[in-house]
């Protein structure tokens, strides 16, 4: 009933809309600025003329970033950690969540308590560090994917999904037909679980893509370092010069020192930004599932 709205109410509408648009612009501004800085001409960057849109055009800094061997290697490492890590995460989380969603499973409550305890207690940083070392994982790729293989939170989300969207009668009737629980899980449950698999893949994959602290703890060998740790060196430890060996001209160096930081942010973040619009609704679904109280 738009017509019956009072003028005051309509002004209020416009004020809220304006406020939200302002919030969106503030949120987006850093992203736009970073992209503009990375593709502006080095002169404009050095003269500090870029405020919002790019000034001039140059892909010079991207050339330097892509010529760098170390960035490719760390990109490859991150891909490995993301693919292998996510596979391990998703397989074990689904298996466990399905078993724990079955009401007739005798150990269900005991295992849930066993898991819930770990959400409130932990041994802490140091004992975990000692454990990972004594398992021989230090300085191996597995240190990035095995500790943290299962997230209790995601396990609970997946379990909630199985409980709420798969009717009990389905596994029960399959069991009467002589299917084992593993057969039921693979042949009947998994094909019905595409939405939750999508949610889990995205949650875990973004986590792996963005992870850096475990690498700092466990990987001393820089040839194993993921992208984020490499970025940390460039962005925060102020060593972009590692990207510009052989660049003689002092002016050029200075211009690129600034610009390289921005282009490496773009290179590292672009995959996530590109996938983001397609997966956004799955994320939201995941949060909603997590919010369902038992």
């Amino acid at each position: 009933m738009v017509a019956s709205k009072s003028i005051g109410s309509r002004i209020w509408d416009r004020v809220i809309e304006a406020l939200l648009i302002l919030i969106s612009i503030t949120t987006l501004y850093p992203f736009i600025y970073i992209i503009s800085m990375s593709i502006s001409s080095p002169d404009a960057v050095l003269a500090q003329e870029v405020w919002l849109l790019p000034k001039g055009f140059s892909l010079g800094s991207y050339n330097i970033v892509f010529e760098n061997q170390e960035i490719w290697r760390s990109y490859g490492n991150t891909l490995w950690y993301t693919v292998v890590g996510t596979t391990i995460n998703v397989v074990f989380t689904l298996m466990g969540a399905y078993a724990l969603s079955r009401k007739e499973f005798f150990a269900r409550d005991a295992v849930m308590i066993y898991i819930a305890i770990t959400m409130f207690f932990s041994g802490g940083l140091i004992p975990t560090f000692i454990l990972v070392n004594s398992l021989g994982l230090y300085n191996t790729r597995w240190a990035m994917v095995i500790p943290g293989a299962i997230s209790a939170w995601n396990l609970i989300i997946a379990r909630t999904y199985f409980q709420t969207s798969i009717p009990d009668s389905l596994p029960e009737s399959a069991k009467i037909d002589g299917c084992t629980d593993i057969g039921i899980f693979i042949k009947i449950i998994l094909p019905l679980s595409v939405p939750i698999v999508a949610v889990l893949i995205i949650f875990y994959a973004v986590g792996h893509w963005n992870a850096w602290f475990n690498a700092l703890l466990y990987l001393s060998d820089s040839s194993l370092h993921p992208l984020q740790l490499f970025l940390r060196k460039i962005l925060l430890m102020n060593s972009p010069d590692m990207l510009q060996e052989g660049m003689e001209d002092a002016f050029e160096r200075l211009a690129y020192t600034i610009q390289l930081k921005y282009s490496s942010i773009v290179v590292a973040t672009l995959p996530i930004i590109c996938v983001y619009p397609f997966v956004q609704k799955h994320f939201v679904k995941g949060v909603m599932l997590g919010a369902i109280k038992e």
Partner: peptide, 28 residues
Amino acid sequence: DRYLLVLVAPVIIYYFIFNYIPMYGAII
């Protein structure tokens, strides 16, 4: 429930190793 136990076994083993052993390790 042996097959359900097989499905949940990795979860139990994982939490035992990476959460319960460090809890014991905290005695250091």
